[in-house]
Structures are given as structure tokens and as C-alpha cells.
Amino acid sequence: MKIKKRVIPMLAGVLTAVMLTSTASAHPEDYWAGKYIGYEDAKFTLRISRSAQTDFLTSDIYRSARDWNGISSNVRVNVSFVINARTTIDDGINVYGDNLGERLLGYTTPYDSNGKPLDTSIDGLISDWAYADITMNTNSSVFSVASDPKLAAQMTFVHEVGHVLKLTHPFISRGLGGHTIDGKPVAIMNQGFPGDYGGAVSSTITGHDKSCLKAKWGA
């Protein structure tokens, strides 16, 4: 393997050239194509399973998913808590909890119609999803190092619901460090803890998140 000791990320320059030719409002890379099989809109109930309800991950954290309401007339998020194992909601998006160590805060998985996880770098980006669910990390030590652990957990859940609504990470938080249109937009859909990247990771839904949601599902 040959890697030079000082590598200049040349691709960043290419991206800069691309961004100058784009319009400032579309942001098509900030959300995915496709909807849910059999649905035109995104109106669903988040079904919070018992596994996701812990002393730390309390009901008010989950209820904040309703912050996505009132932005697009085609988006409506309800939150329902599973009281006993028998409670079922047919069209619910299930929210589970599990101890994921300290590597992940939470994640959303899209599935094809056979229940297989979709590739989120190829088909998951362009196809209709059969279903999606959310897994929250019930290992509270992953959040405990945040300046406000509860807020970090709440931000994570609202962020994951954003993925269920087909929104993606608006800036590349890693190697190339650049959103292709407006640098590092302040957004809840950025990865990390609230306040990271000079405040670009937001604990609340921002103007950028709202414009992406409306671009995706209509005003």
C-alpha cells in the first residue's frame, strides 16, 4: 500500500465546483428518493416497545418525535407506548431498545418486502421501502458523556425519526467535511451530540431540516 504522508483532499475542490452550479434551495442529496410501498404520504404511529422504555429513555424523549408535525401536510407522526406485550398497532413503525455498547447512539433500518435490511448506500436510497424500524441504544453510558445526556438521547431519537421520514445526513461529517451546497448547515439530521461541529449538530429541528422535509413530502 502506498499512502503519501501529506495528502491534500482534492475531491473537496471538485465538490466546490459542483456546488457553484447547484441551486441553493433543492438540496436533493439531503433526502432519499422513494416512499413506503403502498403509501403516498408519511403518516404513521411510532410504537415504542417495552424494550425501548428505560429509566433513562423516558416517554418525554419519545414524545419529542411529534416535533416533526406541522411542517408538511403529508407528514404526521403519532407516538404510542406499548403497555403490555399484546398492544399492537397495524401500521406502526416499531421502536426497539437494545444494549448496543457505546459505539452507536441509535439507528434506523429500512427493509425490503421480505424483511431483509436494504442497502442504505444503493437501493435504500432510491427504492420504496416496505418498512423501517428504529433501535435506540439502552446503554445510557453512551449518552452520559454528553454535556446534556437527556438532550443527546432526545436529539438521537428525533434524528432517527428523520431517517424514517427519508431525510439523510446533510453534511459529510467525516473525510471531506463538506455539504455540497451550504457548507455545514445547522441541522438535527447531522450526526453527533448537540453542539458538535461548532453547533452544526442541532438538538432541535432547524430551518434546514424543515426545508428538506417539505422538499421530500410537499409543503
Binding site: 431483509k116 436494504l118 442504505t120
Partner: peptide, 12 residues
Amino acid sequence: VRTGFANRRVFE
């Protein structure tokens, strides 16, 4: 198959 849209820590 790369799957799961995550939120994780970032180190800038």
C-alpha cells in the same frame, strides 16, 4: 449490504 442509518459520535 451496508445498512442502518445511525447516529454516532463524531470527532472533528
